[in-house]
Design a protein around this nucleic acid. Structure first.
Lengths: 170, 170
DNA sequence: TAAACTAAGTCAACATGACTGACATAAATA
DNA sequence: TATTTATGTCAGTCATGTTGACTTAGTTTA
């Protein structure tokens, strides 16, 4: 709330923040990891990379491969293997771009939607409990700080991606 | 601050939290990744795994291998390669446990300390700026929520590790 | 229209950091 | 003394990232 204040952050708080972020993220991703490990696919198993693709395609139906690459910040060769598996196993469908026929627009299938729900469910439960306990004010403040932890030059892209600004004072 | 409130978190806030945590962590680890990529070691390059080991040994001088394993939650075989490199290149020293001679107590060398500083510096700068902008109240609240994002059964271990409770209302 | 650029896909080789399973050694403990 | 514990090691595998080179098809531009 205050932009300038007389109490600068202590080295201890900063160090704790670094470590807490590590542990929080570790547990946060361990949830879907379990779901992924349980899923037995015909052509090889699925990992975090597949989860990320399913998540972002689910959130942005009809996105292009190039858009997905810029979000994930990996090479197209890395994405290719993951995407191929997801298409072959019926989680994701491709469609020719109506404007630009070179583009391949990505969509989740019904199977993909169901898997997305199963994957994100434990994460949603985790945050729901957290926010219920913390209350709306602390929750919104938490989102704001997470947002400001992101590189300044990437915030616009993230903002348009997650669709903030209206409901959430980001 | 409020434990029970009439405004439950919206699905949108929860989804945003999931995505923001992903992006924030991505940028947060990209900083030391650059430092690691720049470092040219004689016997192979260093990665995130080395960073984590250096960080926790730096924070807990004299810790045992078993303690390190329980923090990192990886297998000893995974740790072995990383630890061997760090010892061979003079970042970490081992010492026989004075009580239990089977134990190998881990310490950073002067070289290890210097590297730890270089690695964590961009992360500290990132959080310092964030906390300066957000103010002490939002900063402490942020730490609390990060802490409560951690699995309940691991919070005690984390707390004793990061040394909260006195200064920080965790 | 021909040339250049762009979106996407593919092949190959490689690095990192995880994993499992089996086994070895030395020290502590029952 | 026998067993358990702390650590280390060998060998093989897998998931996920990388670079570099190249193809195909469609769009844009000179």
């Amino acid at each position: 709330m205050t932009d300038i204040n007389n109490k600068p952050p202590t080295d201890d708080e900063i160090r704790q923040a670094i470590e807490l972020l590590f542990f929080a993220y570790r547990d946060f991703v361990a949830d879907p990891d379990k779901v992924l490990a349980d899923y037995e696919s015909p052509k090889g198993s699925l990992g975090r990379a597949h989860h990320r693709v399913i998540h972002f395609v689910g959130r942005n139906p009809g996105m292009t491969v190039a858009e997905l690459l810029s979000i994930l910040q990996i090479t197209k060769q890395s994405l290719a293997r993951v995407l191929r598996q997801l298409i072959d196993e019926g989680f994701i469908e491709q469609e020719r771009g109506p404007e630009d026929a070179r583009q391949r627009l990505l969509y989740l299938t019904a199977k993909g939607e169901a898997f997305e729900t199963a994957l994100s469910n434990p994460q949603r439960v985790r945050f729901r409990r957290l926010f219920e306990k913390a209350g709306p004010e602390a929750s919104r403040s938490f989102l704001t700080l997470l947002f400001e932890l992101i590189n300044e030059d990437e915030r616009d892209q993230v903002l348009s991606l997650i669709g903030g600004k209206q409901q959430t004072s980001l």
